[in-house]
Amino acid sequence: MIETVATVGLPVDETLTIRKNRLQPQENILTGEKKRISIVTGIHGDELEGQYVCFEVARRIREHRELLTGTVDIYPAMNPLGIDSITRGIPAFDLDMNRLFPGNREGDMTEYVAAKIIEDIEGSDVCIDIHASNIFLTEIPQIRINELHKEKLIPLAMQTNVDFIWVHGASTVLESTLAHSLNSRDVPTLVVEMGVGMRITRSYCEQLIDGIFHLMAQMGIWKGETKEPRRPIISQNPDDVSYLNATTAGVFIPHVKHWEMLKQGDLIGWIIDPLGGEVLDEILSPVNGILFTIREYPVVDAGSLVGRLLREETLKEGK
């Protein structure tokens, strides 16, 4: 059933509405206390991978409603104005919606919407917040966890069929994210990052969808067959990850594939100058490791991130 989470009037003949699809078991199925999972995406209007995930989760459940034994709430568009106008933030305000939580019912329109969203998701047994990197970087399917909540979240993340779990340090700025607000309100919330902005990578989506159904089965929300999840690499140490930043402005030309094992000194890519026909810099792998982030958008400034490597030692420990 489609339900309204929040509405705000816009000036000229339009209402902003945030909706969710609530999927529940057929009435004749008797269960004990029903569990509830919330699947959330579209906080950043340019991140679209979650659109396919929402569609496919709803489609599979509709096809086999008899297998559903709990509540699934699907929120495909937290920032509908952003998605429909190819805008990452909240249009007009140019605000990052994921820096507004937990919001304020008495605040302005953006804070009000954020507060209504939190109110609506509260009470879920698990929430999955699906992000898709940005337009600049492609990410391997991964879950990012604030170290403050790792005990509760790592066991859940292990069920979701992602390749990588990245436990990062706490940061004051991140206290205003949806995930932090929900985790602080006892709604275990997993942040998925996968793929790239403005595109849909179906293989990654299918991988995560299989993981979501497996997690739902573990929680007692789904009684259909599910695939055994792959065992993810877990990184909990900041030194596990090596960052590659452009040393100069130019155009990045990759020489390797995403999720490729590299040896120290391997050529990752060039930064070129199209005007002069020169290679301005060769980006070499600083360590032995696997490339889990790679730059998608070619134009770089000095400092632009072109990739992230997970060190070989972490892979061994992870396995």
Partner: peptide, 19 residues
């Protein structure tokens, strides 16, 4: 390029992203 706000980047990081 990336629509980041320089006034959300202090104290900054000289080996980090552009802003």
């Amino acid at each position: 390029t990336d629509n980041t706000d320089i006034n959300r980047m202090f104290p900054g990081y000289d080996l980090g992203e552009t802003t």
